[in-house]
Structure formats: structure tokens, C-alpha cells
Amino acid sequence: MAKIYSIFWLVIASYSPCLSAMEVYQFDSTEQEQQYQRLTRELRCPKCQNQNIADSHAPLSKDLRQKVFEMTKAGKNEQEIKQYLVARYGDFVTYQPPMKPQTWLLWFGPVILFFGVLVVVIWQIKQKQSQKMPSIDLIQQQRLEDILDNHEDEH
């Protein structure tokens, strides 16, 4: 039996030199294992299309996993390991964009958009309320709307 598998895998190995999406590592503690899992998911394989190093089959990812494992085992914390890799591969290697002037648009843009629009909208409605209604008979329209509302609730 074992022979069949070894032949089978010899064939695969010759076709694809980068077949190894997982290694079996022994960790000292669950914290270490979880740190390893978190990090390998947050680090991007520099060689691949768009995959984290945990999922990627590329040999480079394997090296990086190995490095993350070694450093984790050596007691390095998440920040240290990330810094180590960013120093070598650049910001590209982490899926969490750094906070720096070039990325302020990315991080704060949506927040500013949200509060900016919120302020404008509230200001507008306040202003509209203080105005008088033009042209349409207000009472008549309100009556109509009340009828519609009630009508809807009855269903």
C-alpha cells in the first residue's frame, strides 16, 4: 500500500515543486499556536496573487511560515515578527496597512465622509423645517399620507 502512495506522490512532486500548504508544528502553548495562526493569516505571500501565507502553496510562503514558527517558538511577539518581515519585504507583506501620512486617506477617509455627510444632512433638514412649504396644500397632503399610513397598517 505504502508503495502506491509513494509512487503517486513522486509523480505529484515532479509536476509541482510547491506542493505543501501545511506543516505540522509543535507549539509550547495554545497562545503560541494561536499567534502563529493569526500571523500566518495576516501576512501576505509576496509571490502569489492575493493569498495569505497560511493558505498559499508557494515555496516562499512555506519559508515564511517556517520563520514565523521559529520566531513564535523563540518567544517573539506578534509585533516583533511583523516588523521583522516588513523590514525585509516592505509594507506589502502585511494585510494591515500601516498608519502613516500616505495612508491617512485610507483610514480616515470613510470616517470623515460619514461625519461630514451626517452634519450636512442634519443641517439641511433643520433648515428645511424652518422654511414654509411651497405650493402644495400641506393639510391636504398630510391627510392623504395619514390615509396611506393607516391603510398600510391594516394589512
Partner: peptide, 14 residues
């Protein structure tokens, strides 16, 4: 501005 990756940590945070 440099090469960066934007992934799950960013999207989840916002």
C-alpha cells in the same frame, strides 16, 4: 506612496 496591501484587518475594522 509605496506598495501596500489592504486586507481583512482593514476591512473588518471599518
Amino acid at each position: 506612496w509605496g506598495k501596500i496591501s489592504v486586507g481583512p484587518p482593514y476591512f473588518n475594522a471599518l
